[in-house]
Design a protein around this nucleic acid. Sequence first.
DNA 1: CCGCATCCTTCTTGATACTG
DNA 2: CAGTATCAAGAAGGATGCGG
Lengths: 143, 143
Amino acid sequence: MIPLKKSIHVRSDERAHDDHEFRPIPSNGICTRLGDKWTVQVIWRLSVASGRRLRSSALWKEIDGITQRMPTLTVRNLERDGLVMRHYFPEVPPRVEYELTEMGAGILRALQDINFWLRDNLSRVEESRRAYDEAELEISRRL
Amino acid sequence: MIPLKKSIHVRSDERAHDDHEFRPIPSNGICTRLGDKWTVQVIWRLSVASGRRLRSSALWKEIDGITQRMPTLTVRNLERDGLVMRHYFPEVPPRVEYELTEMGAGILRALQDINFWLRDNLSRVEESRRAYDEAELEISRRL
DNA sequence: CCGCATCCTTCTTGATACTG
DNA sequence: CAGTATCAAGAAGGATGCGG
């Protein structure tokens, strides 16, 4: 029913490898989820909303140009993971609110460092990409 | 030439939205890369190697059951982003070493918090998934 | 030894249309 | 309003074989 990855899929669970210096790595499944197209944005929108809650329509509308399908799927998966709670009000017309759980807010905090890293390094990454692509082009020209 | 995402694609760049409380969110492109199947693992393997360097074959072999294609692509993209340096030694047979740059090591540090979050919450996430799936099944049984 | 080219399969995303 | 079903397109992942 939920097309998006339903497997728990702890991809590279390093708990078996403590022969190395202790430094386990982000087990994925969650990481993959965080890397998908809308998850982080949805979590963030909820986190800045009052009471960490938003009505569906409000949530959709804050995210630019997208049909309802993806945000719905995203939020379903977050609900399944326990990062978001769904509140259904059987009124007419029906109303639904999504609330970020404490656990969901926690993952956002964990993302802050990546955020800082990006702020500090994104321009260098982009520069590196430009240089790389140009060098590649140069090579192909010479052939 | 490099099939894996080559676009810079800063998906949800929030620098335009500081009307909200200041809390920019992980711009993606990088996040997407981190969420792909091998990137984090490759960075990690390199980071624990001596001199943050590994020869290709050594790197591949440390990663279980995979043909050379994916690790090669992963490392290429990391090189393009400036997170990894490629050292080529034109010997016979040729030898190649990959070295994690300072920037690359930095992103691993930024990942630590997610790592901690996972350690502390993964079991709860899994429990939530079980509960959700069971409830869903229950519903479909009643129809 | 290193890794690219090719082909194929699966998953993700997006567009559209239709129910309670 | 909220959300699902269906279909189509594209990207990512994997297997294999060739070439420097």
